[in-house]
Design a protein around this nucleic acid. Sequence first.
RNA 1: AGUGCAAGCCGACUUGCCGCUGGUCUGAAGGUAAUUCUUCAGAUAAGAGGAAAGUCCGGGCAACGCAGAGCACCAUACUUCCUAACAGGAAGGUGUCCAGCCGGAGACAGCUUGACAACAGAUAGUGCCACAGAAAAUAUACCGCCUUCAUACCGAUAUUAUCGGCAUAAGGGUAAGGGUGAAAAGGUGGAGUAAGAGACCACCGCUUUCUCAGUGAUGAGAAAGGCAUGGCAAACCUUAUGGGUUGAAAGAUCAAAUAGGUCCCGCGAUGAAACUCGUUUUCAUAAAAGGUUGCUCGUCUUUAUGCGGGAUGGGUAGAUCGAUUGAGCCUGACUGCAAAGUCCGGUCUAGAUAGAUGGCAAGAGAUUCAUCCAUUAAGGAUGUUGAACAGAACCCGGCUUAUAGGCUUGCACUUUUU
RNA 2: GGCCUCGUAGUUCAAUGGAUAGAAUAGUUGUUUCCUAAACAAUAGAUAUGGGUUCGAUUCCCGUCGAGGCUA
Length: 129
Amino acid sequence: MNSELHKNERLHSKKLIKELFDKGSSFFLYPFKVMVLEINFDISETNQVLFSVSKKKLKKAVNRNLIKRRMREAYRLNKQILGEMAEGKKIIGLIYVSSEIVTFHVIEAKIKKILTTIKEKPLSDKNHP
RNA sequence: AGUGCAAGCCGACUUGCCGCUGGUCUGAAGGUAAUUCUUCAGAUAAGAGGAAAGUCCGGGCAACGCAGAGCACCAUACUUCCUAACAGGAAGGUGUCCAGCCGGAGACAGCUUGACAACAGAUAGUGCCACAGAAAAUAUACCGCCUUCAUACCGAUAUUAUCGGCAUAAGGGUAAGGGUGAAAAGGUGGAGUAAGAGACCACCGCUUUCUCAGUGAUGAGAAAGGCAUGGCAAACCUUAUGGGUUGAAAGAUCAAAUAGGUCCCGCGAUGAAACUCGUUUUCAUAAAAGGUUGCUCGUCUUUAUGCGGGAUGGGUAGAUCGAUUGAGCCUGACUGCAAAGUCCGGUCUAGAUAGAUGGCAAGAGAUUCAUCCAUUAAGGAUGUUGAACAGAACCCGGCUUAUAGGCUUGCACUUUUU
RNA sequence: GGCCUCGUAGUUCAAUGGAUAGAAUAGUUGUUUCCUAAACAAUAGAUAUGGGUUCGAUUCCCGUCGAGGCUA
């Protein structure tokens, strides 16, 4: 599996973002809030992911960019944990809720945990939003 | 060599691996009549700032309004110039303040360096000036000063009067003085007077007019006024000048279906007349409603609502353009005191769109802290820490604010050597 | 990205440019009570920040910082 992260793997459609925040199931794993939604195969060919850092938590744009870059890098290096899913694809929202700047190693460890959790989650989670 | 001030410039590096963005080239696959388009792979060079920030000004660009006028609103405010434009910049003028020098008895004036100035108008009008103070803007109401007359008292001479002093009441002349206050009605000195006063004189300050110099702000000189009306316009306001409004989430193009929208045609308002007496025909009509940037004028459209038929075509999701060749950058020459302008030559240097510059490893390292050594002092070694402010979002010109450290130039001071 | 509004005691609000910035509540101390509450009395506490205009600034003007809202 390649370790690239192209534009079609990032979530940029306004409709899908709205759907994710309306219908998706969420859980916390500090310092992240994670939202997941399973979608049909024909809408998207790959998993799509969204990274978000709040302006309320980190005031300066430099620090927000830094955290987003570290999150993106950690997802890129570890996305093979999710593997190939036959049933459908997932859209994932990763929202940073801490107000401190965390090093890359911490973020990578947390992302690994999150991806493992998502993979092991049963499909029945979708039925009771 | 060091320290301080001012101006200008730069804004932490190397290697390896894995990645992101748009461009160019090559190859493969698919589509098209073709130019060519889409996808994938590889190669190649490139990829945040001096403030990208705050959004405080000014423009370009775009849409809207039927063109336009006035009012309202907003902004600016010494002069000349620069500029696409500006509340920006350059040069200059004036004023205030600090310091120094100097003249004068004094009021005050002159020169030099530096800093600062929202620096039009306070006799166009309105308003405000707390407390204190006689009075805060029409100065003379008050306390005072001087004087006339009357009365009472005291003293002297002397005798029923005169002179002097003091007090009270009335009248008159004055504005010197009046603990205050941020601010007190030209100032200093003289002469003068019953007491006084620009009422008078000298000087200083002020105002007005004229002449000369300067593009101009203004300056110099002369004459006159005799001084008559303080401060606040970052209070309302007046004058002059400028501004239409809204912002790229503006806007343009592509674009499936339904409803809706828009346009055209017919029926359709009121009154009168005619006859074939039907909701048939002909003629006339005004005002109303609506659109139009905050308002008014002006201007435009329509004849209610609604129904029927026909045509047109766009809101929303998305894509492309707008959108990176521009008041561009660099070098040089010329003009100008300067801001800046002109010309020759060279050059193309981010273009993302939930938002691209990152991660890991190693090295080198400004700096911080601790220990040890040495010295008049600067210093050296080991370990530790590990780089300021900060991220383009349509593009430019400024302003403001944040900023570790380094470099260059000029000035001043100190030390060392010759 | 663009536009607008607001910052006053710990909290909620007042204050025409003019005396020591006021009130409620919360806090502290005391009286009362066997103790607590309530009541009464006293007390401390603030104009976001830096400049400017003015004799004088919470108020007027400018900059900075912070908070909130509108706009697809």
